[in-house]
Design a protein around this nucleic acid. Structure first.
Lengths: 139, 139
DNA sequence: CTATCTGCAAACAGTTTGCATTCCA
DNA sequence: TGGAATGCAAACTGTTTGCAGATAG
């Protein structure tokens, strides 16, 4: 746990950014939650123990984390921005019933897709990045 | 052209909905544009020739078209709702430079993904629908 | 000390909603 | 004529912005 904090501090300060209480709290909230929360969810979660952190700060902090390569962000079906502390490329499983979003990583699948687009060039388009949206239900 | 209008009229009326001038104009605009427009884009486009159609009507009409199975909708990276008159399953090509969105359909790819998820069950998750987000640049 | 970060509130964009009026069937 | 569709404006939600004051390094 301490290690993670030190790593975070290093990541932050190495980018010339300042290490603040707010940033620590926000980052920890993201790591604790497995649900790829929105800025608003993070705000509601941390506000219980840290009532003085403002919503604007949460938005700005999450954005700087993304810029610093500490978080990834993506849009969900509702158009909400989701934040993800897992930085390597992976897909997401969207549960149609609970609207939960789980991580899914499969190197074979990545390989399969890379090969496919290497072999099947698209007329007038150069593929740079392919990601999967997997919908279904968790059981 | 006439044929399409009659087909549209049939689709609309067969659902117990009314066939109006606004709905015709909105549907035609979508078919003419190849760019998967947002409601706002449709509004701006039709408003040149039909200044009296209101924005609210465009939103409501697009939504009823989706419910009636006349259009598909999906979210883009910016969180905007996009509308698509092509109803069979297909992927989209997102151009990172122009932010254009093109259609991409490849039965082999669909087959490949279906097979993959048939053979690779995901622990605790039942896949219902898989779609691809393909980013790159058009050339 | 000073550049960055924070908190607050106002602004913004896309979309939805409510309701009186209009219009298709 | 009756029920659905329209137009308009107000409301709503998620997010961004501007700025004065606070704070890390």
């Amino acid at each position: 746990m301490k290690t993670n904090i030190n790593k975070l501090k290093e990541k932050i300060t190495s980018k010339g950014m300042k290490f603040t209480h707010q940033r620590l709290v926000i980052y920890r909230s993201l790591c604790d939650s497995k649900d790829h929360p929105t800025a608003d969810m993070v705000y509601n979660q941390i506000t219980e123990e840290n009532p003085s952190i403002s919503k604007g700060t949460v938005y700005k902090t999450l954005e700087s984390f993304v810029n610093a390569g500490i978080l990834q962000k993506f849009r969900d079906d509702m158009g909400l921005m989701r934040f993800d502390p897992v930085m390597d490329t992976h897909s997401h499983l969207y549960c149609n019933e609970s609207s939960n979003i789980r991580d899914y990583k499969n190197p074979d699948l990545e390989q399969l897709l890379n090969n496919f687009f290497k072999e099947n060039q698209i007329e007038g388009f150069e593929v740079e990045e392919v990601s999967l949206v997997i919908k279904g239900k968790s059981k």
